[in-house]
Design a protein around this nucleic acid. Sequence first.
DNA 1: AACCGGGATGACAACGCTGTCATTTCGACT
DNA 2: AGTCGAAATGACAGCGTTGTCATCCCGGTT
Lengths: 348, 348
Amino acid sequence: MKVTINDVAAKAGVSIKTVSRVINNEPSVRPATKKKVMDAVKELNYQPNLAARNLAGTRSYTIAFIYDNPNAYYVIDMQNGILDACKARGYELLIHPSNSKSPDVHKELEDLVEHSKVAGLVLTPPFSETPEVIETVKKLGVDYVRIVSSEAAQKDEDNCIQVDDSSAAYELTKHLLDQGHKRIGFLCGGEEHVSTHGRLDGFKRALQDGGIAPQQELILKGEYSFDSGVQGAKKLLQSDNPPTAIFASNDEMAAGALFAARLMNIDIPAQLSIVGFEDSPFSRQTWPKLTTAHQPNNEIAKCAAALVLSKARSKGAAESGSASKEAGIQRTFTPSLVERDYSGPAPS
Amino acid sequence: MKVTINDVAAKAGVSIKTVSRVINNEPSVRPATKKKVMDAVKELNYQPNLAARNLAGTRSYTIAFIYDNPNAYYVIDMQNGILDACKARGYELLIHPSNSKSPDVHKELEDLVEHSKVAGLVLTPPFSETPEVIETVKKLGVDYVRIVSSEAAQKDEDNCIQVDDSSAAYELTKHLLDQGHKRIGFLCGGEEHVSTHGRLDGFKRALQDGGIAPQQELILKGEYSFDSGVQGAKKLLQSDNPPTAIFASNDEMAAGALFAARLMNIDIPAQLSIVGFEDSPFSRQTWPKLTTAHQPNNEIAKCAAALVLSKARSKGAAESGSASKEAGIQRTFTPSLVERDYSGPAPS
DNA sequence: AACCGGGATGACAACGCTGTCATTTCGACT
DNA sequence: AGTCGAAATGACAGCGTTGTCATCCCGGTT
């Protein structure tokens, strides 16, 4: 049958409590003893029983992943990253699709935390950027890490993994400017996403630094969807003085913009350049491939999970104050330019 | 703190064992007693502690979802369906991305089952259609349910939720034939998917029933990807005698075909009809929208999970032989035609 | 050489539930 | 009313781990 802590203790010639100490990295175990135990663990391929740990211990070995982003690629990427981090540390993952706009969210969160005894929460946008939700989470006193666009991180940096949308958008815009584009259309994502504002901000800053006056008529509101990209691009391209480039706030919109351009028989990239954002599989499934900003969602999620786990752990073990600034966990990510087929110099 | 079985027992004036009997639906509890207990449960909002259940009981309250399909939409849909079923029955879900082609699969599965003490497995294609993998799962003696294309279900119907690709493809093809199309191109999905063969089979049958001779040159091998759709459609449309309609084996390929047609300035649906398969968000993110066969992945997954849970339960409880044919769980799904913008009568 | 203090270790209860088995209850039949 | 058997219920021991607290051992003091 399954190998338990008793087997390990017997093999190592110590008590189960000592084994427990070793696998939990508690102090007061002589190096020699520790080695004996670790050898036994390895030899028997022992792995602590999660159910028993959860039951007996004060801390839990489960964290939850909460999301309400409709983009499947995004969610899967994040989920896999978190899963990796959990596996590495012997934790379990509870998947919790939710809806930040629903009035039940608060009770839902409460139930999740109280009932399931989770050690921590990983939140992604737009859920992670909804103030009331964060408020509730804070009140619950559970450890959490929010993955957010930098602008949304202000108040509790310590619980955030940030994505610097503004800087990335700046870089992307600069790329277009460098290629001679003077009129660049901008398709905004949904208002509820902080990233929408960050990306727009970066875009504007780059324009300004490039000495180009604001062109309000080229900035269009929208949503992070294909349809929205189609509509926005159409509007831009049908205007009297159409832009020579379009900055779409994500790849899906860029694919939409691309589609619209095709419909209008516009040659790409000769007449029009298009850039996306995120580097989702979407940008590669379009054809030819989109120039975009690569956002390492998998890695971001892994760091978020690692961070929340380290919080949960340090809390459980030594209450040694300095636990917060975890070494080795990257806190800020700036998506970086990936130049592909869909952008080129401005037409002369 | 948390409300436990003891609180319920106290409130109801019975022993904890009786409470246990009630919440597990075991026999030999007087209706009056049962009611008392249920009332107490409701009043206290009691929910059994999963860790304790897992630890104490012989059966486990965790099932695993194993997949290796790269399509995020597909996976998320399935996952949500399974999650629903689990929640409804108080089970926990273990997410396990895998790779049916990796040589480590067997050991991986073994570890998963032995170590994590899962009550059941839900498998999706192509993982669920890989013979060696199924072999391993069977050997492990764990309950499982495979979601498969009907053709792959032969041997162990009892553990399958089937998707009748052939019939659905037949219907879709018939739809095209009814509109007067005589030359229809067919873009195959990846060989490793049984659905690829089922869909082709349905296509051929419909053609035959429609009195149209096989046109081998119109059937192209491919993969379930956008790129593959682009390539295939290009090839078809550049031939001497191009088809008036294209049956793409999934929506992603259809989107690719659509894209290729646009590039070649082919008017749709006037000159060419395109149909997809699956009704993934993809088919709606394309624009205008694709005609396709709606495959209710969410529902399918829910049934699969319900089935595996009923297996696990019946095994744990009364070993009453007849447990297998679960009432009320749909076993076969036939995706059904969803007519949208991208198909029309054949050009005259 | 006896003594002390603190690090190292172990014994044992507890976590919340299920499984086993003993005990009680109840209706039906003498 | 007394007896019997099955149904209903409960007492109690685990499940594999952690937390608490007692014990042991050791080097350093006096």
